[in-house]
Amino acid sequence: MKAFITVIGKDKVGIIAAVSGLLADNNINIEDISQTVMQGTFTMIMAVDISGTELNFEELSAELGKAGDKLGIEIAIRHEDIFNAMHTV
C-alpha cells in the first residue's frame, strides 16, 4: 500500500533525519523523496510503502503529527488513492 507524506514548514536542521528515522522504526520504506525550499518554506514529498508497518493509518498519522509538532512543522500522510482520484480521469 502506497502513501504520500508531505512536510511543510520553516526549514531547519534535522527534518529529513527525524521523518526518515520514524519511518525506519516503523518498517516503512521510502520509495522517492523530493524537496524544495521556497522563500524559507521547506516542502518535502515522500512516496512511501506502508505495507510492512504494523501501525494503521490513524496511528501513523498521529505519530507523524507528533513528530511534526516537536519540529514545529506540519507532517501529514495520505493514501495515494486520494491523489489518483483527484488527478486522473
Partner: peptide, 11 residues
C-alpha cells in the same frame, strides 16, 4: 504517476 504539483495542489 502522480506528480509533485498535483500532490501539492491536493494538499
Amino acid at each position: 504517476m502522480i506528480n509533485r504539483n498535483e500532490i501539492m495542489e491536493t494538499v
